[in-house]
Design a binder for these strands. Structure first.
Lengths: 200, 200, 200, 200
DNA sequence: GATGAATGAGAATTCATTCAT
DNA sequence: TATGAATGAATTCTCATTCAT
């Protein structure tokens, strides 16, 4: 009769300990011993739940993208340009724990980004984001909330890049107080004027 | 009389070899032996020019920021909004070797970005960039090229963040073909509409 | 449940292997790999028990002084001058393994002896030895076994130095056959005449 | 026409710089660069005068023994036991620079003392010292300054060991204030009583 | 003769991973 | 299942020695 453990709960617990550890010391400076200690487990036990150190990081990052995608899917179609932009503003606000995760991501995958290995996954993700924005814009176009000559597909992708850029910028340099709500509002204002129908 | 060497030239040569090596294998996976071999030197020789591996990365990154600042300083004051935006578009185009450097930057400093150590340097850099854009906008405002109600200071910083965000996005995910000239044009178009004076 | 090891026994085993290795090759010429091999362990395992090479040497030397002090403490108060001198003779006889340890000591700490770092510990040790001899002499004086005008305190310390000097001499040059029992007897004889009451 | 340099003077200068350096940092911690800098020479230049680092130490030590032997040879035959003992006392006083040299000696040769390599040289030296003392004692015996039953040969060697032991003790632990003139006087007093003719 | 730039052998140390208990 | 002791591959860094200038 094997001891019954909830494999998933265990993995989640480990991942939560890992985020904290990685956030505090970085991926490369965190040892397996650190992770195990943070999770209150023995070193060997970690290997019962993850194949190796990299697998822990991967699982962590997968989870993040999964949550992102879910959040996106759950988002209601915005009724107005203003609502849409509010959504963008929200997307640009990154809580510190996610910011930490993004930094870990670059520490782990940074070097690999050049060779399309991880890149493909990301492409998919950003395509999804761009399409999501594009479809929202198309909808707003039909209801006359954005200027009629807008190439919604291109604009969607451009916005995805801009928003993601702000997210990156915030996550990576957010410790500096330069990137605050004011900046985001100003950016949103620029977007507003760039998207809305012209005229009075 | 001993061999006479140009210390600066030697360091430059090493740094150039290092960029290539780091770009190819990443900072953490590159060994001192790799760097030395890439530079056509013995392991020990590297240590005559750099105190250690981290110092190589630091010098590399310092150089990058130095060049960036210099480029900025050299930039002529843009006569028109269009010229200004062309400048932005240019700033968003990152050649692959600089992109590689940016990736190295995050691999090296990423974990440390949370604790304001490196952050301060970056703050200064982005302040500079924001002020630079702000001053250009102020000038454009006086010549009536941007809408008179623009808060040039805030807008300057917002643009700095957006541009830098695009640079990061491009550098980190640029391997995927999603981030191309089209995207940048679309983004610039949004900026244009967000900044220009309203009306017919 | 992990393997259970007796940390102390392990350290002792390592130290014993280390003495042999250091004795054979010297401290500086012995590598961690040598020590590990001699102890029948993997290189990394050593580091589970000692922080580094120096710590091994330190532990070795601490042990030696500990044993010395213990031996001293256990020594019975000598009933006669002859018994006292027999004790000195015994103290001057250094078994080869202790001699090796003394040589290691000088290799490790020799350069540091000038700056009173290690010196303080040694001072304490020799004070103890001197006081020990002094108290024995005082006792012998009360029972009329040494000449009544003897400054037992000074004489105690002088004997400590002389004995220690012989120990050092023996340990360092003992490989040469010059320092044998004959020498020690002759020295003891000189001490005898120098300490005993005068007269017929 | 080769540049004319006084090879001997150069070597002496280097050795003098080396003593200082070794005394300050120890043999193993002193690098060739340190020695060269201390001598005001280029690293490569050292190798024109000494085959390698060890040769420097060897020459240093040889010099020391040479001077010792010379001093001994120059010593006048002592007219009285008191004069003889004064000589011993003098021999036990070690100036700090010689003490440093002795410490270097043990750092360099310590490990090798077990295997009779260096030991043979030392044996010779101590034989010489013992014989020197023995011959002095024999002379003193003929003039009735020491007790007639003294085995001068054995006593000579014993004294050599004792004196050398005190020298070692002083050189190695001299930094501690324990080993002072008082100690030496007391030791000499013990010797005096051990050697002089008995009686009133 | 003099020099110090170049070198690479060699050493200490770390740490992901395995596996006996 | 759970553990942490054991391991050795891999890495950084030092420094005696060589040799082109």
């Amino acid at each position: 009769m094997p001891k019954i453990v909830d494999r998933d709960a265990m993995q989640t617990a480990i991942l939560e300990a890992a985020v904290k550890t990685f956030a505090a010391k970085g991926y490369h400076s965190s040892t397996i011993a650190d992770l195990a200690a943070a999770a209150g487990l023995g070193k060997g036990t970690l290997y019962l739940y993850f194949a190796n150190k990299e697998a822990v990081a991967e699982a962590m990052i997968d989870r993040y993208f999964g949550r992102m995608a879910e959040r996106l899917r759950a988002e209601a179609r915005p009724p107005s340009l203003q609502a849409f932009l509010d959504g963008l503003r929200g997307a640009m606000e990154v809580p510190e724990d996610e910011a930490a995760l993004i930094r870990v991501f670059f520490e782990v995958y940074g070097p690999g980004l050049a060779s399309g290995d991880v890149a493909r996954t990301l492409s998919g993700h950003f395509d999804g984001l761009g399409d999501h924005y594009a479809s929202a814009l198309t909808h707003l176009l039909t209801v006359g909330e954005v200027r009629p000559d807008l190439d919604t597909r291109s604009a969607g992708r451009a916005l995805a890049s801009l928003v993601d850029g702000m997210v990156l910028h915030g996550a990576l340099f957010g410790a500096s107080p330069r990137v605050g709500p004011g900046l985001r509002s100003e950016a949103i204002d620029i977007f507003l004027r760039g998207l809305r129908p012209e005229g009075p």
